[in-house]
Computed example of a mutant assay.
Amino acid sequence: MGEDWAFSEIYRRYWKKMFRQAFSKTGSDDAAKEIVQDIFLDLWQRKGSAQILELERYLFKAVKFQVLDFYDKQIVGKRHREALWAKFGEEVTDSVEDQLAFEELNGRILECINGFSEKTREIFTLNRLEGRTVIEIARLLNLPERTVEYHITVGLRHLRGHLKEYIIVFFALATSLMIRKGL
């Protein structure tokens, strides 16, 4: 009972201030709400193990880091979209239906990548979006090559599992491109 009351009091006291800070940095109502919600969820989940000396300072540093993570995801997403458009976009844009299907598939891929653990997302992005080799990534991140390979495999497995329902969209796009090119 005491933990619930204390958490509610912390939430009541700091939610608006944290939201305003997150909103001022992101300019997005939804992003700011999600950032604050994630911080409080993490705080609740670690309530028995977290040792916080200055609560207000901790909470506002958490907002700062969550905002940075938000922009990190935005940059990775933008790079991914640019890479996909560079490969397929010019050919796909002939048909509005194809373009919409491509956008839907692309959005789902980005959603999946953003759901990876931080390390897997970083390694997967370096490999699949930036085109770096396993050896380059291992040297860059000071990791064994087997660890890099593991994270790439985990990322691919995760994508395959979450994109099963989009296989029809992918084949429709591929077929449409092949028909247009006369293959």
Rank of each mutant, 00 (worst) to 15 (best):
A172Q: 13
W5V: 15
D4L: 13
R79A: 06
D30P: 01
L53S: 13
F170P: 00
E149Y: 02
L140M: 14
A172N: 09
L84D: 06
L68S: 01
E136N: 04
R12A: 09
A172S: 13
S28E: 12
K25N: 12
R12K: 14
R146T: 13
T153Y: 13
I113P: 00
S95G: 03
F60S: 11
L105A: 08
S8N: 13
D94E: 13
G27M: 04
R128W: 08
D4S: 11
F19I: 10
V148Y: 03
G107F: 02
L84S: 11
T133C: 03
Q21L: 14
W5A: 12
E103Y: 14
E54P: 00
E54A: 10
Q99Y: 05
L126H: 05
G27T: 08
T125R: 00
S8Q: 10
M1E: 04
L156W: 01
Q51V: 03
W44Y: 10
L159S: 02
V134S: 02
C112E: 03
R20H: 07
A22T: 10
W5L: 11
I109A: 05
I109D: 01
Q66F: 04
L141D: 02
R139Q: 09
R180P: 07
A62D: 04
T153W: 08
G182D: 02
S176F: 06
P144W: 00
V154T: 07
E97Y: 07
E118I: 14
V76F: 01
R121Y: 06
T120E: 02
G107A: 04
L163A: 07
I35C: 09
R12I: 01
L159V: 01
A31D: 08
C112Y: 01
A32V: 14
T153L: 10
G155H: 05
I75H: 05
E145R: 15
L53A: 10
F23I: 08
Q74G: 13
G48D: 15
L43G: 08
F7A: 02
H80M: 15
K17G: 15
V36N: 06
Q66E: 15
R128Y: 11
I75K: 06
E3N: 14
I167V: 13
E165Y: 03
T26R: 00
Y150F: 12
H151Y: 15
G2L: 11
D94K: 06
E122I: 05
A32D: 04
Q37E: 12
